[in-house]
Every structure is written in C-alpha cells, then in structure tokens.
Write a protein that binds this DNA or RNA. Structure first.
Lengths: 361, 361
DNA sequence: CCCCGAACGTTATACGTAACACCTCGGGCG
DNA sequence: CGCCCGAGGTGTTACGTATAACGTTCGGGG
C-alpha cells in the first residue's frame, strides 16, 4: 500500500534514459515535457504558453523561447491526451447515407467549412445505405466526438445514435416528432409547390410524380406538397410512380408512367435530379422530345442538372448551408445556448426541360 | 511523495461522492470503474473482460456479469483515454481535394469499407481545392490519427503533411519521386492507350485532347500516353486544348478545339467525364451530332457517364479499390509489414459516344 | 523594518484506460 | 509436511495534457 521502499516497478533503472519500456505504448514523438526540458521550464509553463493563457503569468521572453523550441522540435500536441484531459474533443460526427450522393457531399463540405471556422473537426459516418442494423457508428467512426449531426435518411443508424447520450442535431427530419436537440430543415414543400405552380402556369394538367419510394420524411413532404399544389387546378390529374433512387431506376419508372393506360402525362415531376436524368432517357427512348413533348423537373440541383441536355428545371437546395447550419446548431447546443430552429428555403431554377405542353388533340 | 497522512487535495472529503470537482472536465458518462464498482470487481478486471483478454484469468461467471452490467449501464469506452494509453488510434486520415468530385467520394467509400473490416476508422481532410497554404490538416481534422492516405491532387496540403512524421500512403502519384511509405496507383496510361486504340480502330485520325490544365501527375500521364498512342498511326494529328475541371469549362474548351483553324477533329478525348459532358454540350451547340459527326470519350466512369445521352465511352477507374488498397497499404505499414506497391488497372467501357468518323470529303 | 502584491513560475493532480507485476487460496504431489 | 502451481483475480502505473493551488523573488509604501 505504501509507495515507499524501492521502486515497485520492474525495470527500476534510475537513469534518465527510458531504455524502451518493453511494450512501447507511444510512438516517440516530442511531448510538451520534451519542450519544457529543452527550454528549461516546467511542462505546465509550456502548456500555458502554447495554450495562449500565459499573459501575466509568464514573461514574454520565456514564452518566445518556448514557442521557438516547440516549433524547432516539431512539437504537436497529443490530441488524445488533450481530449482526455478536457473531456471534450471539439469534433462532430456527421452521419449521412452516402457521399457518392452529391447532395450529401455538399452537406459535408458546408459542415467542414463552418466547423473549420470554429476550430472544430468533422468526422463522417457514412451509414451503409443498405438496411440492417449497421455497425455501431461510435465504434466505426472510432473518433471521440462531442455531438452528432445526422441526416434523417441515415435511418438505419439512428437507433444506435440515440443510445450515445450525445447532443443530436437532425437534418431534414420531421420537426414535430423529433427528440433531437436541434433541427435544420429545408423548406421542401415550398420548393415542390413552386415547381407545380410553374408547370401549371405553363398550362400542364396531366402530371406524373416519379417518386422516390423511400420511407423518409423529406419524400413524404414532396408527395404531399405536389398533390396539394397540383389539385389547386380542378382539372389537373396526378399519378404517382414509385422508384428507387438512381438513373436507371428512374428511367424504368418514367417509362412505366409514360406508357401506362389513359392519356399520357405532359409533365414528369421527379423527386431528385438523378431520377429526372433517367426520365429524360425514358423520354428519348419513347421518341418524345424534352421539353416540346414532355416537361421534366428534378430536385436538388446537382451538377448533373446542368450537364444534361436539355438542362434541367429543378429546385436548388442549399446543401452546403444545411451542413453549416448543422454545425452552428450543434455548437450552440454544446455551448448551452438554445439554437434557433432553422428552415432553409429552396429555389426553383427554370432551365430548358420545361415548356408548355404540346397542343392537345 | 507518500500518499499517507491526509489528502493533499483541496476538497479533502473522504466520501466516495465526487461532489463536482469545480470545473467539470468530463461529461458524466459511465466509466469502466463504474462498471467495476457495480460488478464488485476491480477496474482491471473490467478492462480484461471487455478487451476480450480474460480467458484463463477471469471466471466465466464474472466475465458474464461484467458484460451484462456494462451493457446495462450503457458503458462506452472513452476513446480519448484508450488512444492515449495505447499510443495509437486505429484511425487513418484521408486527404482528398473535394468530395463533391464523385471520384473521391468513391475513394472514400472504398476506404471506409476496408477500414471498417479492420476495425479502423477514417477521418477526412478535404483539402480546400483552392491553392494557398491550407489549414494544418492535423489541426483541422482534429482527430488523432496513426497515418495518412493522400491523393496527389491534394497538393496544397502535402507539404504540411510531411511534417507530421506519420506514415504516408500516396494515391495516384509519381512512384519514382515519392518519399511515401507506400503508393497506390492507377494504370492511367493503359486506360488512355486503350481509348486511343479504340478510336484509331474506328478510323479516327484527327484528335483533340481536352486536357485538364492541372499540374498533377495523373494528367501528365494522360497527355503523354495519349500522344504516344495516337502517333502510332503516322497520319494521325493531335491538338491539345487545356481547360479547368468542370462541365462549363469543358464546354468552352471543346468549342475552342472544334472551331479552331485547320480541319476539324473527329474525336475529342477528354481528361474526365465532366469535361466530356461539357464537350457534348459544345457539340450540340455547334450542330454536331454525337457520335455520328464527332466522337467523344471521357475518363473515370462517373455516374454522369450513363446519365448523359448518348452514354459516354469512358475509362472506368476502380475508385473504391483505390481507397481500399490505400487502407490496406497503410495498415501494412503500421504493422511493420512491407506493403506491395499496387497498380490498379482501368477498363475501357465502350458506349454510345464513339463511332467511326464521318466520311471525309 | 516589515509586509504586500505583482511578476513569474512550479508542483501536484486528474482525466479513463490497458498492461504489467503481484497477491491469495485451495489442492495435488513428492 | 512442505512446496509449488494454477486459477482468479487486485494494485499500480503510465500515457500527455490542462489547470487549480501553491511558492518565490523583488521593489516599494507605510
């Protein structure tokens, strides 16, 4: 029990040399203590100087010398030790379905940008988009984090996320039934309504909704908003063709919608730009010209929208702003402030894939 | 020095209750010691059991009880503490230009996948694609990492990366002049050669290279390989039109190439699919049909390639495999094994944007 | 002459974990 | 009987950092 009487440790060699402590727990990097030794001060002083808390406690000369030596020795603070000591990491975990979806890549870019401005880090957990219980994000990310920002589309990871007891900011999820500490939403309904009104104003009355068949709030909102807006014109009809996400899938769904029974729709409203790209291919395959014979709209305004010919009329969503707002909200929560709930507007971008419907027979 | 005789600490209250140590360094999560107390064992035992090193040292009954309590109390190991103790983090830093480039999003996906299989994490440093000294990746990523995987296109961050003293795996960089611990390369030259041979076989002789004007190894290789392959046909001509990356930029460059002096090229070889998409738009704008009047090829095989009409003939690069190989190489280096240098092949995917040239006048 | 308060640092922890070196105890064996 | 052995643990330490609490010197005012 007493620590007196001989070193209880195995390699009780009182030389200053460490002599490789037999299991080498650390890569031999310079520590703040090394800098301290070199500067002839205590480790605490180094910590004060480098932490910029030295004013009035350390002389300017000493501070300068410490800084110089730190640079010279290539000192880099050990993040693990710092995080342990402080009990926080200044790091956020961003949970999204997949970055190959450009929308989420942009969300990440916005988050990374805003985070950098606050000296905060972002680590990513791309929730495997298949279903299944998903690996534990906390294990997979393997980085200690202070809070979580999660897209509602990463649904399969959400259950696990709850358990962590960490502050959670939800992106684009139902604000009513969310137990998150904060939410950042997109005004999806408004975007869809504007799309419908644009098409109605052009004279369209026969609509088909090529709808992402995904049980996610954002897509429910799209369907509902479209239906509501379309039916403001009493003679308008709307049929819905569900599809998985993706160009090929969208093409198949659009072909079904265009070759179904009854009069052919003159406008295809697609749940995202990839589906819209597929719809364009379907149109061409059926010998329909876009936009003369058929109008097509997308959603998201990915770079794809302007790469296509004709360029897509679509709703531009401020993806980067979503990421930024997510970071800001999380920081607010972590600082104990109440984050204002955010709702970001979309914007209808009219390009070349919409036009008045062909003259009816 | 002796621990006897009264607690030297300020709030010397010998109760077991911590009574909030005045600055609350840690969020009050369950620690392994809490689990130990609940199970009536020592913290060391908890560590053994949960670290799966208990066989032959702890009875099965005790181990079960510890595991049950850990789950019940919602115990999650403190990664910062673990990392500090072990001196490693089982985390890799992936440095890429930007994830909005689908190619790098796929690289990341591959890396994340391979990493997860080895219980390793990946954190991302998207090097701001502008030039400039870039923030310190180690600071920005804010996560302690064991090693780095960097794309050669994240050039502006590379200098800083060197300083860290961490193992570095380079992706798609010049293997000859690289001081990296390992390299993972794509056989870009082969892909470009196949493209040229495909076009030559179709009968093309007048080529234009819409070339990414970026000082990066991968693009130098493309230019060189294309020139070499094209000039195997003695009557072939090749002009080069540099461009920035992106659809709009590619369109402008293609327009220059098509409207320049001399006979018009019949084949446009583009350095990536985005540029190729721009080239398609340029062709349409000039009244040229693809592929009847003009053949166009891309590079990368992004999802864009099949979204376009006509679908692009392009070189499919195994982006995900690059990420996977990067992780594997890094793990090998960290384990002290010598990683075999990897060179991954591309594959020419012939689609609808290439055809024999129009009959010459 | 003495105490005081700046100025300038230092000492001592504590964070939570993993690994090592010890303990203890009952039984088998020579 | 004495001794060792293995099973089943415990005590202690160290990782590198940040900070609260505590010295120590020195010039000056009362």
């Amino acid at each position: 029990m007493t620590a007196e009487g001989g070193t209880p440790h195995g390699h009780g060699d009182p030389t200053t040399e460490p002599t490789t402590p037999a299991h080498r727990p650390t890569a031999d990097r310079t520590t703040s203590r090394d800098v301290a030794r070199a500067a002839g001060v205590s480790q605490a002083t180094v910590s004060l100087v480098l932490g910029d808390k030295w004013r009035g406690r350390v002389s300017e000369r000493t501070a300068d010398s410490v800084r110089a030596l730190a640079r010279e020795l290539g000192y880099r603070p050990n993040l693990a030790a710092r995080n342990l000591r402080l009990g926080r990491t200044r790091t956020a975990l961003l949970v999204v379905p997949a970055l190959t979806n450009e929308f989420f890549a942009r969300v990440h870019a916005g988050a990374a940008h805003a985070a950098a401005e606050h000296s905060v880090g972002v680590v990513l957990y791309p929730s495997p988009d298949g279903i299944g219980p998903a690996r534990d994000p906390f294990d997979s990310a393997r980085a200690a984090v202070d809070g979580i920002i999660a897209s509602s589309m990463a649904a399969n990871a959400l259950a696990t996320l709850r358990g962590g007891g960490l502050p959670l900011v939800m992106l684009d999820s139902d604000p009513l039934r969310s137990d998150a500490a904060a939410t950042v939403n997109l005004d999806i309904a408004d975007g869809m309504r504007r799309t419908a009104e644009h098409l109605l104003a052009l004279g369209h009355r026969r609509f088909a909704h090529i709808a992402a068949g995904i049980d996610s709030w954002t897509f429910h909102v799209r369907a509902e908003a479209l239906a509501t807006a379309v039916h403001q014109a009493p003679d308008a009809t709307l049929r819905t063709e569900p599809t998985a996400l993706g160009v090929t899938e969208g093409r198949a769904a659009a072909e079904r919608a265009l070759s179904g029974p009854g009069p052919r729709p003159t406008a295809l409203v697609c749940d995202d730009d990839l589906i819209a790209a597929g719809a364009c291919k379907a149109a061409r395959r059926l010998g329909l010209r876009v936009p003369d014979d058929l109008s097509i709209t997308g959603f998201d305004d990915l770079s794809l929208a302007t790469a296509l010919e004709p360029e897509l009329t679509t709703v531009r969503l401020p993806a980067a702003a979503v990421g930024e707002a997510g970071i800001r909200a999380l920081i607010a929560v972590l600082d104990g402030r109440a984050p204002e709930p955010t709702e970001l507007p979309g914007e209808l971008v009219v390009r070349d894939s919409t036009a008045p419907p062909p003259a009816d027979r």
